[in-house]
Design a protein around this nucleic acid. Structure first.
Length: 290
DNA sequence: CATTACCTGCAA
DNA sequence: TTGCAGGTAATG
């Protein structure tokens, strides 16, 4: 699931429900491989008794700030969701972690595919996690100039580069495709080949696409749920993602959206609006490969 | 850089 | 039965 808008929604929904509560017990943990650090034994020893003082997000990590300097970091990967439930709500077989709060409600970590991961981090661990990620695209400090600097000198293809969390945090397969469509850029364009005008378009596209998705509480295709267990609504506003099964037309030009594979990921584009090297946008260095 | 692995459910 | 899925780390 979860890309930036989905994790942001989960964080906001969780914040509204659990800040100030104490985690009194780990009521269920039936897939210990989800705990990346510390060891499961230490996790069991350290987590109960901690109070939740804040809930936030960094990249696609959901961060529960606890007392005593600890942070519970949760990555939803492909199929995870986190939600809060009353005491009488039974956990199904796909709910692999249940935390009981001091008011008897439970935090459920539901994850069909078991790709999700949990870390209990001290202050140093949190700094390391932060440092392994690029800038936050919705932060005030992420400007067009910052994006230009990220692209400068990079020979990587645009889509794989934008999916790289160490370069820019939070974009995933859906929102990269949507952003590139909005900016009229082909996913195979070489990053360093973008003109200033194209960088400006990409910047505007990323910000607009993500902002709208957050406003719509994320996109639900299969598993993703908000922190209240509800579906997001942004999937109704996709311009290209998933539009190929039914051969739907580009909303700008009417050309049928097509699916290709870029960097091993299913990729959706308008072949008319997003041409590889249209006009004067030849990449520098194409005829002098390094 | 490309391929494979990690898991499970679902549609073709 | 096969292939695909919102992500990422590990491996040739």
């Amino acid at each position: 699931m979860p890309e930036l808008p989905e994790v942001e929604t989960a964080a906001r929904d969780l914040a509204a429900q659990v800040i100030g509560r104490q985690i009194v017990a780990i009521e269920k943990l039936d897939w210990e491989r989800m705990i990346e650090t510390p060891t499961p034994a230490e996790f069991h020893a350290l987590l109960p008794g901690r109070q939740i003082v804040a809930v936030g997000r960094r990249a696609k990590w959901l961060l529960l700030t606890l007392d005593a300097g600890w942070t519970l970091a949760i990555h939803l990967r492909m199929s995870g969701s986190v939600s809060v439930h009353p005491p009488d709500m039974p956990a199904d077989v796909y709910t692999h972690l249940v935390l009981r709060l001091d008011d008897e409600r439970r935090i459920f970590f539901h994850d069909t595919r078991k790709f999700g991961r949990v870390r209990l981090l001290d202050a140093a661990g949190l700094v390391l996690l932060d440092q392994r990620h690029g800038p936050e695209p919705l932060s005030e400090t992420f400007t067009e100039e910052v994006l230009a600097a990220l692209l400068r000198g990079r020979r990587a293809q645009l889509k794989p580069l934008l999916l790289n969390q160490a370069v820019l945090a939070g974009l995933g397969n859906i929102y990269v495709d949507e952003s590139l469509w909005r900016a009229r850029l082909h996913p195979l364009r070489l990053a360093a080949s973008l003109t200033q005008r194209e960088i400006a378009a990409l910047y505007e596209a990323i910000r607009t696409v993500l902002t709208q998705a957050v406003q719509n509480k994320g996109s639900t295709l299969r598993d993703y749920r908000t922190g209240y267990g509800q579906s997001g609504e942004n999937q109704h506003y996709f311009m290209v993602y998933g539009k190929t099964n039914v051969g739907q037309p580009c909303s700008r030009c009417g050309t049928a959206i097509v699916r290709l594979v870029v960097g091993q990921r299913g990729t959706h584009i308008c072949p008319q609006c997003q041409q590889i090297y249209a006009g004067s946008t030849e990449p520098s260095g194409l005829d002098s490969p390094a």
